[in-house]
């Protein structure tokens, strides 16, 4: 038992690893910020494409959405990081992570938006257009605010997935939270830094998960 505590919950090791892990956390935060922001914007346009009556817009959008949802994000990341240099495009680990997860997440956000927009009755479009609002104004002022409200739990769920997804960035040696923890582990021959990283993820995400549950109950009531 002492050995177990010493190996996994060694407070001394944790204390020494903490500054290092906080650096990793900062990197995780930067990846999350970039991927979530880009994903929310990209997903919005993908959703508009998927819902467009114009076939030349709809088809590519549907293909892109399906493709990046079907492709495992780790495969995509390795492809972007090690594949693109062969095409003459050098990317930093950070850029590779952001590009790969942006592509992956736009598709997921896109599907959420699409469900949200489709949940708004036709009459809302017609009322807006009949008062002379343009299509863009109709989407911006009438459809999107209602759509986002309807799918807020799903947007939030997806955002939680993004945070967890960033731990894959350790594969391309990007110093995010998990990578830093793993480095600390191999330096100290002790698993406590990993436990500390897990704890940090938990503390960050648990309130969000709780929030999603509350939203979902609220919507059901």
């Amino acid at each position: 038992m002492d050995l177990f505590l010493d190996q996994f919950f060694n407070l001394d090791v944790m204390a020494r690893a903490l500054p290092f892990l906080l650096q990793g956390l900062w990197m995780t935060a930067k990846i999350c910020a970039a991927v979530i922001l880009l994903g929310l914007v990209g997903g919005f346009f993908l959703a508009l494409g998927c819902l467009s009556p114009r076939r030349w817009l709809r088809w590519p959008a549907v293909v892109v959405t399906d493709f990046f949802r079907a492709l495992p994000p780790l495969v995509l990341l390795i492809f972007v990081y090690s594949g693109l240099p062969f095409a003459g495009i050098q990317v930093s680990p950070f850029a590779a992570v952001v590009i790969a997860f942006f592509l992956n997440n736009s598709s997921y956000y896109g599907e959420v938006y699409r469900a949200g927009i489709e949940s708004i009755p036709r009459g809302q479009w017609e009322a807006a257009r009949s008062t002379g609002l343009t299509q863009a104004q109709t989407i911006g002022y009438v459809i999107l605010p209602q759509a986002v409200r309807n799918v807020l739990p799903d947007l939030l769920s997806n955002t939680i997935e993004v945070v967890k997804l960033t731990s894959l960035a350790s594969v391309v040696s990007l110093g995010e939270l998990l990578y830093s923890a793993n480095m600390a582990r191999s330096l100290t021959y002790n698993a406590s830094p990993i436990m500390l990283a897990a704890l940090i993820y938990l503390v960050l995400l648990w309130p969000l998960v709780r929030l999603v549950s509350r939203f979902q109950r609220g919507l059901a009531a």
Binding site: P121, A127, S130, P145, Q146
Partner: peptide
Amino acid sequence: MVFQGFNLYPH
């Protein structure tokens, strides 16, 4: 135009 279902913006 006035619709059968009113179509006010609920938000």
